[in-house]
Structures are given as C-alpha cells and as structure tokens.
Design a binder for these strands. Structure first.
Lengths: 206, 206
DNA sequence: TGACAACCGATTGTTAACAATTTACAACAG
DNA sequence: CTGTTGTAAATTGTTAACAATCGGTTGTCA
C-alpha cells in the first residue's frame, strides 16, 4: 500500500475535501449533493465528482438513489457499532497474536510517536485530528502484522464507520482521556504477556 | 429501500457479472482488467466500466494502481481462514438477527432459487459454479438485512477468501453434500426459532 | 556490451456533449 | 375542490473525444 501517494487523482482529492466538509458540519446532514454544483465548486467535470460520490456512498457517508442523486447520510450509529466492536476485537486481537513475539523497540517508538501527535490534538481539542490519529494508531497496530490481507480487511471495516469514531470522540468532555485510554495498550504490549495484551485491546475497543 | 430493483444502472449490472466471473474463477486471479476490453464485451462505454471497477476495488476483489489499471486480487493465504470464520459468523449472525422477524415467503423463494442452481451445479460437478452460488447464497442472506453497512463489510471480508470456498469444495467426494449442507439453514430460518437459526449458521460456517 | 535517454503505442484520466429520468407545476376534468 | 395528466426544467446516466501517463523499444554513446 503506497503510503505517500504523491500524486492523486481528482476524485480522491475531492473525496477527502467532501468528507472533511461533511464531518465538520460545513455540509449538513440530509443535504443534497448536486453533481453540477460540486463540479463548479472544484472546477472539474462531473466525472471525478461522480467517482467521489460513489466512494462516499460506499463508505456510508452519503446515500444515493438511482436518478435521484446523493444525500448526506444522517448518522444512525448505534446498531452498527454493535457489529463493529466484535469485528474490530477479532481482527486486532488476531493481529496482536501474529506479531506479539517479534516486537522490537522500533515498534514502540513508532506507536508512541502517533500517540504523541494524538495527545497534541487532544490538547488542542481538534476532534478531526484526534480521530485521524486514533485510526492511524490502530492501523499501525494491524499493519505490524505484516499481513496485507489482514490490513485490508481491517481497513474496510473501519473506513466504513469512520464517522462513528468521530462521534464517539465528541462524547468526551475532556478529550485528553482519549489519549490516556491508549496508553495501557502500549504498556500491555511491552509487558510480554500476550494474554494481558489481548484483554487490554478488547477492553479498549469496547 | 427498493426491493425489486427492476431497473439498475449499467455499472451495477456489470459489477454483478464481473463478481460472478471472478468468484467462479472464469476470470483468474492476477488477470488484468482493461477498460476497453470490458467496454467492448459489455457493449457500453468506459464510464460504467470504471464505475464497476471502482466498486470491485472497494470490495477487495481487484487491486487498482493509478494509471496502471486493475488486477484481479489474489486470494488471501490459508492462515487467514482462521480469522475469516469468526468474522463471517459475527456478520452473518448479525444479519439474521436483523431480519429474522420480518421474513416472508418471497425471501425463501429467492434463497431456494439460488440453492436450486447450486444443486444443479453440484450434480454437474461444476465446482466453479458451486462456489459462485455458495457465495451468492450467503450474500443474499446478508443483503436481506437491508443494511448497506453490513453488506459492504461482509463483501470485503468474503472477497478476500473466495479461493477457500473453491478449495474447501474440492474436498467433497460427493459435491451434492455441499448443497445438502445448506438446506438446514433454510429450515432453521423457517422454524421461527432465532436461536436455532443462529446456531445452524454458526455450525455451517465452521 | 551496457547504460541511458528519447520516442511510440497502449492504457487510464478527464472533459463536455447527448440521452434518459425525475420532479415540480400548471391546465384541466370530474 | 380534488385528483389526474401533460409538459418543461433540472438532474443524473451514458457516451465519445481529448489529454496525460506508463512501459517497452529503439537508437545512441561511452
């Protein structure tokens, strides 16, 4: 998976901008997305716009009806969270089992680096950044398994519910708690007890 | 949600045809998908083809590189099966819980229709077709939940292990058993006992 | 011979025009 | 007044042409 992605297609860039607009509330829930409007706004043709909308639809951020266009989805988080929790538990615990015996200091450095950035975001109360780093941290965990398939499966689960990450973060009065809740994971991974690490990740996800 | 879907876009139809081709093995792993070839084959322009490929990429059925097109993804290695079983259990049981109380005769008709085709494939010992219908059956189950989130997640999980469907089928001396093992699922769904249905699907997946 | 750069064909990315469908609204009949 | 039907505008679906990019090939030079 190409991390840097120096040059990206118009569609991908538009996806990111729209996703950020929707998550930040600049584009409201239920609002209709018209291809021509977006094409004018981004100064591209409707091709990349349609590409972006299709992707957002797959992520569950907008709903599309044939010949009727796209509406920004209203969040219905609760039921699906119930599904996501066991799925994440299964995949992330599986990842930990794969890599636990081969951990090195460099791994902890990498993860702690991400958590540092998350801490700064928490202090700045920048919820968009907090979510990004939260996802990045767990992605880095799964990636450490060195299994592209595992990473791909995990990604498809999480990106589908990126919005729920964000919404659950908004429930924290003091965002620094989000950061603090990640520290035990690192500790447990350092502890040399796989059973304990599996338990901690399970508690964390729930 | 439009149940019948009488009229669907070209892109959606092409997604289904390509998915069937790949799940059955008619299009091999690693094979390159050229937009122009597909456009000629389906007698449409490249627009709907690109739409279909993007969707297949999201489901994990093909891998795309910018400016380099799409390759049919290679199925995950055997170890992953260990992970997939609990993931499928979780998602398919979740789906059954969602729809169990609203089942109608039409649902059973649809599913039995797929199983009929599977039966014919079993009698013909056509393992490619057996796999295709096996996956199609489970997909139809999950789709019945009417939850796009659930279907999206399930799709991306199963697409990565499609080869294991075929390989596990090859272990059967008498392929008709594959068909017969699906009948208890229908029976349990008809039985009005959700707990029993959940147990049956769990036993079936393992 | 081997490295390297400039081309060329093939393929994907993007655009703009055209076709089909939906929606809103107005005219009309009962 | 209510419901229906026809029409036009707005919007999405599809197409085909054009632009940009990639990979291999060929030719040059050390």
């Amino acid at each position: 998976m190409n991390e840097s992605q120096l040059v990206r297609g118009l569609g991908e860039q538009i996806v990111e901008r729209l996703r950020e607009d929707i998550f930040s509330g600049r584009i409201a829930e239920g609002q209709r997305l018209r291809e021509i409007d977006l094409a004018k706004r981004f100064d591209v043709s409707r091709g990349p716009i349609r590409e972006a909308i299709q992707q957002l639809a797959w992520e569950g951020i907008v709903n599309t009806d044939r010949n009727k266009g796209a509406l920004v989805a209203t969040s219905a988080p609760d039921e699906i969270t119930e599904l996501i929790i066991p799925l994440r538990c299964t995949t992330e615990k599986y990842a930990i089992r794969l890599f636990f015996d081969t951990l090195t200091e460099a791994d902890f450095l990498l993860w702690e680096n991400i958590l540092d950035k998350m801490k700064q975001a928490c202090e700045a109360k920048d919820f968009a950044l907090i979510s990004e780093h939260d996802i990045a941290f767990h992605r880095a965990l799964v990636k450490r398994s060195h299994s592209p398939d595992l990473l791909a499966i995990w990604s498809s689960i999480v990106s589908r519910v990126r919005r729920h990450f964000r919404e659950s973060h908004l429930n924290y009065k003091n965002p620094i708690q989000i950061y603090e809740e990640h520290l035990p994971i690192i500790d447990a991974l350092k502890s040399k007890s796989m059973a304990q690490a599996l338990q901690v990740i399970e508690d964390h996800i729930e």
